[in-house]
Design a protein around this nucleic acid. Structure first.
Lengths: 157, 157
DNA sequence: GTTGAAAAGTGCTGCGA
DNA sequence: TCGCAGCACTTTTCAAC
């Protein structure tokens, strides 16, 4: 009896259907989902619990409009690291900068790639010149400013 | 009496505090938020209604772990458009490709910049070679593959 | 594993300050 | 404009299938 963790780690179509619905609107009541999928509310609850324990569901976020909240500038940053600099150290430093909302370790031209959201262009300038440049090991950056976010959605299961 | 829309379109600290809490966990009960902020549940409700009407709150999403859901490859795509091609037409075509989860119209080296999530490398290859290349007006693309997503969060208000 | 209903807790609405 | 209280609804649990 060594298989301790094998407590139904599979996802079936019902799980997928539940996720599909909740990915669009996380506040949708279980009872409504149950009606749509023709199962009982209790089943939805059991499945959700399983998915959460499996770690597939990491939580739920309120989606706000950054522009209406006063954050008007989205930019992408290609980052070149100096040779011999630990990627991990740079991540730690960059994670302290609140405006950095995404950071990837990438193949290709850049060492790292970041997404930044700022209030306006002067705020962006400050973040780039004062905050980012102050991170040890960052050699050079290339900035792409987003003039329009045309698509923004989640993966389709 | 021309000011028809001026029905309190301002955001105070209470609104910000409510958003801060719900942005981390959209399922947090109003009553708990009310306790934390030392106001009544009804007040939270009124503020939320205001924020929704103002369009600051766009909805709520379930956050899933793409890797555990079988989507292991995240890539960024710098896109060069041919001269004279309408940006809008390209957006329309790209929005039909499910794997494209983000698309920006950008300044800098590229005309457009996309984020793509795929199951594996062969899935990515298919999307790049068959789907993306088939879009009229796309001259050339540069791919950055994310080996690790080190930071992923929302803006801090 | 699923169901259906009972119990507990939450969201919503109107009245009062 | 805000806070309180009652009603409707949802979530959660549990015995039975």
């Amino acid at each position: 009896m060594l298989k301790k963790e094998s407590q139904n780690l599979e996802i079936d179509n019902l799980d997928i259907d539940i996720l599909k619905q909740l990915m669009q609107d996380a506040t949708k009541p279980y009872t409504e989902i149950a009606k749509d999928l023709i199962v009982s509310g209790g089943t939805i609850h059991v499945r959700m619990k399983k998915l959460q324990e499996m770690g597939i569901i990491k939580g739920s976020h309120l989606i706000i409009d950054p522009q209406k909240a006063g954050y008007d500038v989205t930019a992408f940053l290609g980052i070149y690291l100096e040779k011999g600099i630990q990627y991990k150290d740079a991540v730690e430093q960059l994670s302290k900068i609140k405006e950095v909302v995404e950071l990837h370790y990438t193949t290709g031209a850049y060492s790292m790639f970041a997404k930044i959201i700022c209030r306006d262009t002067s705020h962006l300038r400050h973040v780039l010149n004062e905050e980012i440049q102050a991170v040890p090991g960052i050699q050079r950056t290339e900035t792409l400013i987003s003039l329009e976010e045309s698509i923004r959605r989640q993966i389709e299961l």
